[in-house]
Design a protein around this nucleic acid. Structure first.
Length: 211
DNA sequence: GGGACGATCGAT
DNA sequence: TCGATCGTCCCC
């Protein structure tokens, strides 16, 4: 298990926080049970100068309000009408910056995660699960929200002291084990398309897309 | 009121 | 590679 990350964890430059998120455990405790996974892939969005960010140009709407708030809270948005995505708000209060959580390595509540995803987990003779089944559980921002039961109900929640929180489960990932590259699915973002603000753990099989 | 679009996913 | 599908945003 490990200890919850403190408020100060989020109160530093966004790119630095994005890297620090790798290896921490995202936990959601609900009436259905607890589900959790280790963060293995993230993307930083730094408005107002980032054309890929919802807050580009300082755009401040009902949806993006949480991004302008204090660090360490959840910014949840809905994409394509059907999927939710979770961000950890970063930066100073008033600066609209956040980090998108893109993929988890499942750690707790695997059966609950599978049930929420509508998947069937097959156990081997020794009781373990196959890597292919596990990879499908929470690889991708929409899938991990589905697997952990994250919806707009969690919008604005504190990630330090709410049922949705982060734990230091293992030691920080060493810098030489962290890869970075361009973010995905932001073709509209012109010059920002190539900015290397996507981070992932080197060689980790749960990363949603290879860079 | 209406039109355009999307930080995705799953099937092909 | 392509289409689903609807909330959000912005313009009229």
């Amino acid at each position: 298990m490990g200890e919850r990350v403190p408020r100060e964890f989020f109160e530093r430059p966004t790119l630095e926080m994005a890297e620090a998120l790798l290896g921490t455990e995202l936990v959601h405790e609900t009436g259905e049970g607890t589900a959790a996974g280790r963060i293995v892939e993230v993307e930083a969005y730094i408005g107002p100068g980032d054309k890929a960010a919802h807050t580009y140009g300082g755009r401040r709407t009902r949806r993006t309000e949480a991004m302008f708030g204090p660090a360490g809270h959840a910014y949840v948005y809905q994409i394509r009408g059907t999927h939710f995505c979770l961000n950890a708000v970063s930066g100073a209060n008033g600066s609209p910056e956040a980090v998108l959580i893109r993929a988890l390595e499942p750690t707790r509540g695997l059966d609950l995660m599978a049930a929420r995803r509508g998947l069937l987990l097959k156990r081997r003779e020794d009781g373990s699960y196959g890597i292919r089944d596990l990879r499908g559980l929470a690889g991708g921002p929409g899938r991990l929200c589905r697997a952990l039961g994250i919806t707009k109900e969690q919008y604005g929640w504190s990630l330090t002291d709410s049922p949705l929180h982060l734990c230091h489960d293992i030691d920080p990932i060493p810098a030489d084990q962290i890869c970075r590259g361009p973010r995905v699915n932001i073709e509209y973002a012109e010059e920002a398309r190539e900015w290397p603000w996507r981070f992932w753990i080197r060689g980790n099989p749960y990363v949603s897309k290879k860079g």
